[in-house]
């Protein structure tokens, strides 16, 4: 397909989005990620029945926690697409990158830098 998507994204492969836990998302922010998005199969099409639905709930909980602690819940997002839908994958990558650019860097990253300086 040779579709391009922003190089700022690091992909973490999982057997199913049902494996995603809140702590994985939080740790990413703790380590300085500006945003995290989970890309699961289309709703109703999970091979393990409800892995992607569980992932959405965990993403929502992570959003809530990040809002409470002042990092911003809008930095976490859940997308659903078919595994063969490459163009949409790239589309979501661009969308998420733009969203995060608008929000600016993760305040934790800035706090780390301040501490180091």
């Amino acid at each position: 397909m040779r579709i391009n998507y922003p190089g700022t994204i690091r992909i973490v492969r999982l057997p199913c989005t049902g494996k995603v836990d809140i702590i994985h998302i939080l740790r990413a922010f703790e380590k300085g990620a500006d945003g995290v998005y989970v890309v699961g199969c289309l709703e109703g099409e999970c091979r393990f029945e409800n892995g992607n639905l569980q992932a959405r709930k965990r993403v929502d909980q992570a959003k809530m926690i990040l809002d409470t602690i002042g990092i911003g819940g809008e930095r976490v997002w859940m997308y659903n697409l078919s595994s063969s839908d490459g163009p949409r994958f790239a589309e979501y990558a661009v969308e998420m990158t733009e969203k995060i650019k608008e929000l600016g860097p993760n305040p934790i990253k800035l706090a780390h830098k301040k501490k180091a300086a």
Binding site: L26, I65, I71, A111, H112
Partner: peptide, 13 residues
């Protein structure tokens, strides 16, 4: 783990 991570980020922020 979740609470510790959340609190660490809160205080750092």
């Amino acid at each position: 783990g979740i609470l510790a991570s959340a609190l660490r980020m809160y205080f750092m922020n």
